[in-house]
């Protein structure tokens, strides 16, 4: 997955294991989750509830809400979330959240 990344990472932080949409990923601990997912080759973060169009991070500053992911049953902005060990991330409300 890493080799497909369109991004270069300058830093070499220790990595932790997270799960995104069922796939195990190794991301830099303490990193910005949106940046780390993109660097790991994730393009599509979610599909919109209106048309199902694919979306990824756009503003990286908490303003646009395009990088929404779901963590512990709550939608969160990936660009405002820090990578921690064992984080389980799903695509927002894909399989019916709040159950």
């Amino acid at each position: 997955m890493k080799t497909a990344s369109p991004f270069l990472e300058l830093d070499n932080e220790p990595r932790v294991n997270v799960v995104f949409d069922g796939n195990a990923l190794s991301l830099p601990e303490g990193a910005n989750l949106a940046a780390a997912l993109m660097a790991a080759g994730v393009n599509v973060f979610r599909h919109t509830p209106v048309s199902g169009a694919p979306r990824g991070p756009f503003c990286m500053m908490g303003a646009c809400f395009d990088c929404l992911v779901e963590i512990d049953g709550t939608t969160k902005q990936a660009c405002m979330t820090v990578v921690t060990d064992g984080l389980e991330i799903t695509r927002a409300h894909r399989d019916g959240a709040l159950t």
Partner: peptide, 25 residues
């Protein structure tokens, strides 16, 4: 402009500043 991979230039700067992540292409 809504496609994944399209971002603001400011987002590009934030990626570099905070995360040391640079777009190759």
């Amino acid at each position: 402009w809504t496609l994944p991979g399209v971002m603001t230039a400011g987002a590009g700067q934030i990626l570099l500043k905070q995360s040391g992540v640079l777009a190759r292409n």
